[in-house]
Nucleic acid binder design. Structure first.
Length: 487
RNA sequence: GCUCCGGUGGUGUAGUCCGGCCAAUCAUUUUGGCCUUUCGAGCCGAAGACUCGGGUUCGAAUCCCGGCCGGAGCACCA
């Protein structure tokens, strides 16, 4: 059925929300997220994982998680578990999980097949020599070895040393992009692999294992960064040799995150030398760091979905993330008082005695109830607010700060308004809790929060009035530790 | 250097394939007002963009050519 009218309508009138449509087939979609286990997931991974997941949901397809651990030099063992946890945080639940390190025999099988159909050859050239020839579109001497000779060498491959030989895929030696010409499929690696030990010596290159797996796992769409553009081109030669259908390759642009230029290896270095407190240090761009600060997974999903899968690069600011996150937190988070850098003040002239002040947990949702603060002559306010002028202590009284003396002024809000008093938060002098807030630059703000915060649980996100949103991370004996999210 | 890919307000996007409905969407941001016992939210308003130059055309963000700018790749990493 070819409904042109509908197509036109859709194009012109329906505003695309989300990721739009996938090219090619929309039936039995299979997509994958294929990280290298070199560390926990960061925003860049989310940029790959989320669209895959969203498309699979949209078309009711299948999502595969494939751990690409074919380079023992680049494996950080804890990452195997971290990746699973991070995906779970994103609420991405793959239908199947594969480890490439389980699949070496498969790669060998296809490597041998490829040799048999004369699609690959064993190459003993020195890397530099090969490059020189390749750059001039010249075949290396090994390229014309017979299939039998190649098979023979293939059998001996595993007893060779690193660098002695590689298996190369035949592409087009005259390809205008030198990068595409006769790429390496297999090489010798003698490192110990965390999951395989020293069982195998012959390791597949990413381009080989990826293409074989994408085919065997029946991928319909391969979504990856545009840094893989040349790799897609390379892999097409493999598909051609085997006469396989090529999946839809989709490439997305780079994501530049303001402030976090940190690579996984740099982050690891910083963790090991103590610069960072761990993989969830608030300065890092890992998902666990973001989560610890109270950034919601929905925020990340929304952000990545909005960026979409276009080829041009995107630069994302924290402001953008905070704006999206605030939309979610605003409703969720109850309000409390927190006083940074507290100073105790005594209000001269106040002698009404102890009062219990009630204030809603959330002024838009009064049904959530109230919190209670004991108010009397002495309270804590922030040093930042301890400046001259008429000041209202929220829901309590109006005071007049003059140099170092604090005088009672009046009681009602109306009077405060007439006096154009600023309105500040405060904390009772007796009933309060020591509080520490880890800021986004890892600095620490110490202060006091109101006693009702004792009802909070780890993971709760609150809004400290006039301070910002923060997530309760730890409850110590005498102290609460929060991570600051944003204003 | 070679190969490839991009370029819409400060930022992120829609529109580009199939030119007219685009004096360009939505979000974020900044900002004025109202409201509010924080901030934010809400409501009403404002600011701000088609990289440049040619060409094709009655008509160009959209097609063509060139420049400029930006990015990626050029591994026995993924």
């Amino acid at each position: 059925m070819n409904n042109l009218d509908l197509v036109v309508k859709e194009k012109k009138q329906v505003k695309e929300t989300g990721l739009g449509d996938l090219p090619g087939t929309h039936k039995n979609i299979v997509m994958r997220f294929a990280p290298n286990p070199s560390g926990p997931l960061h925003i860049g991974h989310a940029r790959a994982a989320i669209p895959n997941n969203e498309f699979v949901k949209k078309y009711k397809g299948k999502l595969i998680l494939r751990i690409e651990d074919t380079d023992p030099k680049r494996i950080y063992e804890p990452a195997y578990d971290m990746i699973l946890k991070d995906l779970k945080w994103l609420d991405i639940n793959p239908d199947e999980i594969f480890y490439q390190s389980d699949r070496f025999e498969i790669y060998y099988e296809y490597a041998k097949k490829l040799i048999e159909i004369n699609g690959a050859y064993m190459c003993t050239c020195d890397g530099g020599d090969f490059k020189k020839l390749k750059d001039e579109s010249k075949e290396c001497p090994c390229r014309n070895n017979s299939v039998d000779k190649n098979l023979e060498m293939w059998e001996e491959f595993s007893s060779m040393n690193e660098g002695e030989a590689v298996l190369r895929v035949k592409t087009d030696i005259n390809h205008k992009n030198p990068a595409i010409r006769d790429w390496v499929a297999m090489r010798i690696v003698k490192d110990k692999h965390p999951r395989l030990g020293e069982k195998y010596k012959i390791y597949p290159m990413m381009n080989f294992s990826v293409a074989i797996d994408d085919h065997l796992m029946a991928l319909t769409h391969v979504l990856r960064g545009k840094d893989h553009l040349a790799n897609s081109e390379k892999q097409k030669y493999l598909y051609d040799h085997f006469k396989w259908n090529v999946p839809e390759f989709i490439h997305y642009g780079r994501l530049k995150m303001e402030d976090i230029a940190l690579s996984t290896s740099k982050a690891l270095e910083g963790i090991e030398n103590g610069t960072y407190s761990g993989w969830d240090d608030p300065r890092l761009g890992t998902l666990r760091a973001i989560a610890k600060r109270g950034i919601q997974k929905e925020t990340i999903t929304e952000l990545i979905t909005e960026i979409g899968i276009k080829m041009s690069d995107s630069a994302i600011s924290w402001k953008k993330i905070y704006g999206l996150n605030r939309n979610i937190l605003e409703e969720k988070s109850n309000r409390y008082f927190f006083v940074p850098k507290p100073v105790k003040i005594a209000i001269k002239g106040y002698d009404d005695g102890l009062k219990i002040i009630e204030r809603p947990l959330h002024s838009d949702y009064l049904e959530r109830g109230n919190r209670h603060l004991k108010f009397d002559k002495e309270v804590y306010i922030s040093e930042y607010d301890f400046t001259n002028g008429i000041t209202r202590l929220m829901d309590a009284v109006n005071i007049d700060i003059e140099e170092n003396s604090v005088k009672y002024n009046s009681k009602s809000f109306e009077e405060a308004r007439d006096l154009k008093a600023r309105i500040i938060q405060w904390v009772p002098s007796e009933d309060n809790i020591k509080t520490k807030i880890i800021m986004d630059d890892a600095s620490v703000v110490e202060g006091l929060c109101e006693a009702d915060c004792k009802n909070l649980k780890v993971g709760d996100i609150v809004q400290f009035e006039r301070f910002g949103f923060a997530r309760l991370d730890e409850i110590k004996d005498e102290e609460l530790v929060f991570y600051f999210a944003h204003k």
